[in-house]
């Protein structure tokens, strides 16, 4: 085994261990279940409203959109949060102190967050399938679409999360990212059809991954006819792949630079300084 592949394999193992830990830990489990429960209740309350011009349940349309949003949250917020917390507590410095450790850490993080994303999606998807009729998930094609949208979505959002996580220094500042995220949810057609928004807002929404993740998930799970209410009356797979792909490519170029700059500054004394600061916050 070459040392490099040892780093990769260690990263995969690390991801597997962390996935198991997050699923056998009541605090983490609450973190998965609680927000999912909220979304399920919202969808349930929307079940009798119909999508304009059809008799299709609004709740059933929101379900895939929320799955898309979940991918964005996991890729962006979870990655950023983990990075900030694990930089503060010295996890990252330990990775830096072992050979190929940063590589192992990053691979591990990708595996862990991907696993967390799948779990978060399943917690919404499985009850949702029982709640609504008319979801078109019977074909292999539908699941394949769901899978590629998730993978490309994670590729588009994880580097962003890594960049944000590198730029902020304290776990508290992550709240600053929540506000624009909330705004993005509002304009991206997650809970309301985007067609009801003014034109200029539609354009802004279409710049960010959130809208395309929602659209991609809808395209996987909703009947063909529902495409009619989307922008351009189409699922626009090519555009989805294009926009998410551009975010992914830009992210994959920029994130390593930002990560490297951040990691270079990590040392025992910087962790120590943050520890002291955190202790002061507690006291």
């Amino acid at each position: 085994m070459t040392p490099l592949s040892a780093g990769l394999r260690a990263g995969l193992a690390r991801g597997a261990i962390e996935c198991r830990q997050t699923l056998t830990n009541s605090q983490d489990l609450m973190g998965y279940v609680f927000p999912s429960l909220v979304f399920l209740v919202v969808m349930y309350l929307m079940r009798d409203r119909t999508v304009e011009g059809t008799d299709f349940s609004m709740g059933a349309m929101v379900l895939p959109s929320v799955l898309g949003m979940t991918v964005m949250f996991a890729g962006l917020m979870t990655v950023a949060q983990l990075l900030i917390v694990e930089r503060e507590d010295g996890t990252l410095l330990r990775a830096k102190a072992v050979p190929n450790g940063m590589q192992g850490y990053l691979v591990g993080k990708i595996v862990t967050v991907s696993g967390m994303t799948v779990v978060s999606m399943l917690i919404i998807l499985v009850p949702g399938l029982f709640m609504f009729d008319g979801l078109a998930l019977g074909s292999v094609g539908a699941w394949a679409t769901l899978a590629w949208v998730m993978v490309v979505g994670l590729a588009a959002t994880m580097p962003l999360g890594a960049i944000i996580g590198s730029l902020f220094s304290s776990p508290r500042q992550i709240g600053l990212v929540m506000f624009p995220m909330m705004g993005l949810i509002g304009i991206s057609g997650i809970f309301y059809p985007i067609g009801d928004m003014p034109d200029w807002l539609q354009w802004i929404a279409q710049v960010f991954p959130m809208y395309w993740l929602g659209l991609g998930m809808r395209s996987a799970m909703l009947p063909e006819a529902l495409a009619a209410v989307e922008i351009g009356a189409s699922w626009r797979h090519l555009e989805t792949l294009g926009v998410l792909g551009v975010w992914a490519v830009v992210g994959v170029i920029v994130a390593p630079m930002v990560l490297r700059r951040m990691a270079r500054r990590e040392s025992g004394s910087s962790v120590q300084a943050r520890k002291l600061k955190a202790m002061q916050r507690v006291n």
Binding site: E86, G90, A97, G268, V271, K275
Partner: peptide, 16 residues
């Protein structure tokens, strides 16, 4: 990385 493998660094753990 090969150089790094020859070093041992004892860090002060906190809650990592």
């Amino acid at each position: 990385e090969r150089w790094r493998a020859g070093l041992g660094v004892v860090l002060q753990s906190w809650r990592d």
